[in-house]
Design a protein around this nucleic acid. Sequence first.
DNA 1: CTGAAAGCGCTAACAA
DNA 2: TTGTTAGCGCTTTCAG
Lengths: 352, 352
Amino acid sequence: MQNSNHPIPTVYDVAERAGVSRGTVDRVLYQRGRVSEQSRQKVLRAVEELQYKPNSNASRLARKKEYLFSCIIPQFNEGEYWGEINNGFLEAAALLSERGVRLRLHFYDQTDVKSFLAESNAALDDKPCGIIMNAVFRDEVTLFSQQLDELGLPYAFIDNKIDETHYALYYGVDPYKSGELGAWLLSLRFPPKEIALVRLLRDSSQRADPNRPRRHGFTDYINKHFPDCTVHTVFIDPKDSCSTQKTLEKFFAEHPGIRHIGMTNSRIYLLEKYLSKHPDPERIVVGFDDLRKNLDCVKKGYVSALVTRHIPEQSKLLLTDFAESVISRRAPKRRDHYVHMDILTRMNLDNY
Amino acid sequence: MQNSNHPIPTVYDVAERAGVSRGTVDRVLYQRGRVSEQSRQKVLRAVEELQYKPNSNASRLARKKEYLFSCIIPQFNEGEYWGEINNGFLEAAALLSERGVRLRLHFYDQTDVKSFLAESNAALDDKPCGIIMNAVFRDEVTLFSQQLDELGLPYAFIDNKIDETHYALYYGVDPYKSGELGAWLLSLRFPPKEIALVRLLRDSSQRADPNRPRRHGFTDYINKHFPDCTVHTVFIDPKDSCSTQKTLEKFFAEHPGIRHIGMTNSRIYLLEKYLSKHPDPERIVVGFDDLRKNLDCVKKGYVSALVTRHIPEQSKLLLTDFAESVISRRAPKRRDHYVHMDILTRMNLDNY
DNA sequence: CTGAAAGCGCTAACAA
DNA sequence: TTGTTAGCGCTTTCAG
């Protein structure tokens, strides 16, 4: 096909046509070293005329350059939200490895600022060409990003971000809107008079509350569309299923009229035991995030709907996009990527 | 990092360790030419011990091999379903081009068997290393696939498939289930007594009816869960918006009780004019597929929900997966890929 | 500022 | 059956 009349042009062809050496062509193409304006023009013209495209395989082979990215994300247990994020990073890294992309992971303790500081410093020690992080500790992250700005190191946010910083890229859902969507789903079949909003005890004990915007989206939607509806808040202990059970038993015994249950964190599965013991065909339960255990609850019918997105997908896309932009030394086409929110019910759970 | 103690091993290292030449290593790795069992074992052991991984950039540079894939899909106008499928193919092809993957496209007329035959022959003339197609004309596709089987050419189906053939790969939604999902959505808020199922005139005039399974999923669901509900069928002409308008006006005038409207093909947008002229807050309208015009209808509130998947995604994944398996000469890990069905409403339309 | 030349790791044709 | 060798197209050092 292109072998007949148009053999694919190489640096050699460009050099010949421009009347310079291959070295010079390389210099103008990649701005290495100084080149006379005259040569520059000649080369540029030749490139244009020949429609020259560098062969990326040859380029990478010769260059032997590695691009190291460091990620700083929360610790996790198997199957949890950040574990899925991590999987997405690993997937992307595997795909990008032949382009010389490498990944270094740093996990910090979300309840401990010091561990974040330690890990962010460790990430700097990697001497990476880019950093990916999330933003639980706003002040510390802001400070860290200023440090990165000074070093000229690009950084990207995953899941949540700090608008005031000069991040290069962001992938995540719009938490406020996801909360609204959850509330909409909860109230879709019939208008709620009373809603149980279940929260985790740690939510208030920790310094950071990453769940706030989503919760506000949720409650704002309800308050706006169902001003007469009461939203009750129940706190359960994610580490103690026994006390959770008791708390729920007691709460719902005191509020027998409640038919709507929502939970704006990713752990709706914690309600499984209670829900299975107290079946109610009229009840509507809405949760967030596609953790395996949450999907199981939908499958079994305990949870009516889940608001989520394919979690690993966003981290995979982020790393891919970020690496691409760093390697090509171009800003990403788009900076903010609010990923689409999926609605998951028992009717469309398969193949997710 | 790996430069210190563990420089990345090359064919040269493997050869040395195995006590053979680089040529021999290459032979056992890629089964070219005969190698003594003894050398084979030695090489294999060395590969194992050194954890040798071939450098794909060097490999592709030296090999200069191209992998041509031919696609045979229906003609389309800008923005239509097959146009989106096509976009997915192009996207994947761009990404895969540096691995030597090339794409040749063949468009046929869905209403004309002969054009399918012509294009399938043209595809063969490309001498591709793999063929991608859909299956509108079942008999002809079956025959063609037998031809491909004999030639030893792998083929993949997109969107729909013929189970009896030896296809290597399939990506598409489960049409029957998507129909059920649509029916579920339509009946979610309140039980339907009467439903208008709008169909396209061409559906019955053409020989093939690719929409059948989805429609059956839809009607089966309704019949099963709402046995007392009547499903009325209305045919409209997709090429004549005037007659469509008249048909709908007349039909709904005769059936004033209908509050549920469904359309199992991808053209719910054809109802926009009617729906906008006859607003009804109680009405529920469900359609399929994320064509731009359909999304607009959801945004404007004429359509309540859309059942879809990200269309270009499935063709992109198909080509990526197919190319990967052909290049590596391995069967894909999985053959059938029923992609997840998204539920789109005005609440989660952004960023889709 | 520019050219020449030595690879990068792998492949494939040719000799042996 | 095996070893040798000349590239693939680009990068980068080193002279000039």
